[in-house]
């Protein structure tokens, strides 16, 4: 039982996680014409293999390309800023004693659980008053706020692991405090910061509610919203296979990040409790 359990378990996990991914890839190779007629089945039926045609069409779609640009730009900026702000806060939480520390953590937790939809009405109203409706800034601000809890949470867990005495030790050895910080602390803290950044990026990349509520043109519309409004060459037929191709393209960055950094992400999500 024990001998067999593991391989079965692994197989289960792999099927569970990858089957839908394989399916959406398979769907993205079905010819659009055959989708209109109906092309059921996991794999494209005989003679309905579209090759790269769907991908080429999606790639030629400037709205979608613009959405990729928006998503990359907005998510990266929000991630960078959010991690910077979170690093300051997490350092304070991990190393300093100050009044209101528990409050910060509870607040972060409360915000992580906040019902996002209840904010979009008033936020829309505020953003149009400030003139940042349908702009990158208009999305970066809420993304930062909503990724901060996750980033603070992860970073403070990481920072508590850092042997800060080493900094003092280095100073005793004659290093300036800046050198001590740069040579000793930065290398130790970097993996944590990096992990927090990846998790933050995932969150921003995934957001849909703000994406559809606070934008109205391709000026700032991110990928998830763009997918929901995706139009193929023929507006009257739902371009399932084109959409699948677009979905696959939108997933590629995630897969690349996951492939390279899986160890760090798992460590981040389990707050460093599980070593690689």
């Amino acid at each position: 039982m024990k001998k067999l359990g593991m391989p079965i378990g692994v197989a289960l996990i792999l099927i569970w996680c990858l089957l839908p991914v394989v399916w959406v890839i398979s769907l993205s190779f079905k010819a659009p014409d055959s989708i209109t007629v109906g092309n059921p089945g996991f794999w494209p039926a005989d003679g309905t293999w579209a090759g790269w045609e769907n991908y080429r069409q999606v790639w030629d779609n400037d709205q979608f390309k613009r959405a990729i640009l928006n998503s990359l730009g907005i998510s990266l900026i929000a991630t960078g800023l959010s991690v910077m702000v979170a690093t300051l806060a997490a350092y304070a939480i991990a190393r300093l004693e100050f009044k209101g520390k528990r409050m910060v953590l509870s607040m972060a937790l409360a915000i992580a659980m906040f019902p996002v939809v209840s904010l979009v009405g008033p936020l829309f109203d505020m953003w149009r008053a400030f003139g940042i409706y349908d702009t990158w800034i208009g999305l970066i601000i809420p993304y930062m706020s909503f990724t901060l809890p996750l980033a603070i949470w992860t970073l403070s867990a990481f920072f508590r692991e850092i042997p800060w005495e080493m900094e003092q030790a280095a100073q005793v050895d004659g290093a300036t405090s800046w050198q001590a910080f740069r040579k000793v602390i930065v290398p130790l803290a970097a993996p944590g910061v990096f992990t927090a950044a990846i998790l933050t990026f995932f969150f921003a990349w995934n957001d849909f509610v703000f994406g559809i509520s606070l934008t109205s043109t391709e000026a700032a519309r991110p990928i998830p919203a763009s997918l929901a409004f995706f139009t193929g060459p023929d507006p009257f037929t739902r371009p399932a296979s084109l959409l699948a191709a677009a979905a696959v393209i939108a997933t590629i960055p995630i897969i690349v990040i996951v492939l390279i950094f899986q160890r760090k992400i798992v460590a981040g999500l389990t707050s460093g409790a599980v070593k690689g």
Partner: peptide, 15 residues
């Protein structure tokens, strides 16, 4: 295993 379990985690909900 780790990589594949992170794919649904990272994938866009809309997708």
């Amino acid at each position: 295993v780790r990589t594949s379990i992170l794919i649904p985690y990272g994938i866009i909900t809309v997708v």
